[in-house]
Design a protein around this nucleic acid. Structure first.
Lengths: 254, 254
DNA sequence: CCCGGTCACTTTACGCTATAAGGAGATGGT
DNA sequence: ACCATCTCCTTATAGCGTAAAGTGACCGGG
């Protein structure tokens, strides 16, 4: 369920994103009883609570005491609504510049991490046709202010920004999927793993002999009681990956 | 549209994945005219051609000259079919061990890259509840054989494997989404970007002043005529990210 | 040889989706 | 008062996974 930017009139969507408020002309007909903002906020609330799969025009309308069709007065279609939702929540990102680029990048990545756990549906909006709203651009501009002192070339910086994004999004997706799976199946990571490794032992006898390195890979895990298995693994690999990336940047830094 | 592993009887699915063939007992009633393999192959063909969104039980049935319901003779439900499809295509991964870990990891990542472009739908199967079929496990075991000589600890190795996976999958997702968007909207990356940056200029005058570093980031691009814009960017950032990761591994290698 | 149990496969039906089409009623300008 | 205009509603369509029930083919045992 990866979704693209609005396919309707792009100018219209861009104008909404950048809020060109054209001093609403006085027209005949009933006054609207809602606003685009109210629709966006209701939609974000639905998506936060029910996930991208639960985001339907009916659900958003219902939350506002309207029918699904009433929303089409305010947005062109669902894709446009998603663009507006996407930029709306990106306003939450405010991590500001720090002197040390290493600390700055870490802070940026940590803020994104929390952000994606707060709004899992954002990860289902494709980056192949970016939304190009002001709030996401602001956040990226701030990352670049942090990255600049490392003295990288523009092409290398592009690679770093992408890799950083892939890493945060990948690890956060793992956490979100794990939570969703637990909610939908009623089975925590740990219960699931316990059951599956038993079945794996039954169906693939001699596992340790056939997969010695996979067996080795699972060793030396620090005991962890509080966080579900997969969430913990994702968090640890996020930190590890970030550390490796930062080291790699240092190698290239001027 | 991220999908999870089968929720029906997990034992049944695991038995199918590891092909415990229980010497089909002779029973009354008509002989089945298909096989699980045929169903899997038809489903993979549909998914390769139409994408995950086009993979419906009706479409698979149609390809086999059957109704959607006929498939339920061979698989428990759509989720189980997806697990079987997932492991089936992972048999294509055969990259084998090389002496140099740097070359070995690169080869592994390149093979995965091609694989995800060949089967975009694989990226929509969640890793939070892994399929645990033999073919994917084999591929990971081979990666570990390559990684082992670097002399990492198991916890660090887990972080590396995850980060590597996030990187390849993230960049490949970008390419796949870009291709899908071009197909669905009839607009290539380049046409889209041209139109959108014009609109951005209209709607956000003074862009260069407000976003000096974003403007800088887009500089020094090597001219590229053959590959669509986004695909090229994704490929370049994949290579750059891989290079940074390998450097980071070298720092930690024993 | 035929009968009864079993299974492959079909048709139908349900609730869900986005949104096109058309209608009702409110509003403001003339 | 009239009319153009706009908000919001109801209705309808094609597609999804799969539950339920029906049809007819096939096999072993009497």
């Amino acid at each position: 369920m990866v979704v693209f930017a609005a396919q309707g009139d792009p100018r219209r969507t861009m104008a909404l994103l950048w809020r060109e408020q054209g001093a609403a002309p006085v027209r005949p007909g009933p006054r609207p009883t809602l606003t685009v903002e109210a629709v966006i906020e209701a939609a974000v609330a639905v998506a936060d609570e029910e996930g991208m799969a639960g985001l339907s025009m009916r659900a958003v309308g219902e939350r506002l005491g309207r029918t699904a069709m009433a929303l089409y007065t305010y947005v062109a279609d669902k894709a446009e609504l998603l663009d507006l939702m996407y930029d709306h929540v990106h306003a939450e990102l405010t991590a500001d510049v720090v002197d040390d680029w290493r600390a700055g990048i870490t802070a940026w990545a940590e803020e994104r991490w929390e952000f994606y756990l707060r709004h899992p549906w954002v990860l289902h909006v494709s980056m192949a046709r970016p939304v190009l709203g002001p709030n996401e651009l602001d956040s990226t501009e701030r990352l670049l202010r942090v990255l600049k002192p490392a003295g990288l070339s523009a092409p290398v910086a592009r690679g770093i920004v992408s890799s950083l994004t892939y890493l945060v999004q990948g690890a956060a997706t793992m956490v979100n999927d794990s939570r969703r799976a637990a909610r939908e199946t009623g089975q925590t990571d740990d219960v699931w793993w316990y059951a599956r490794s038993a079945e794996l032992g039954d169906v693939a006898p001699g596992f340790d002999g056939r997969y010695p390195l996979l067996t080795w890979l699972e060793t030396d895990k620090e005991p962890n009681e509080t966080v579900p298995y997969m969430e913990h693994e994702a968090r640890v690999s996020f930190e590890a990956g970030l550390g490796v990336l930062l080291d790699g940047i240092a190698v290239r830094a001027g």
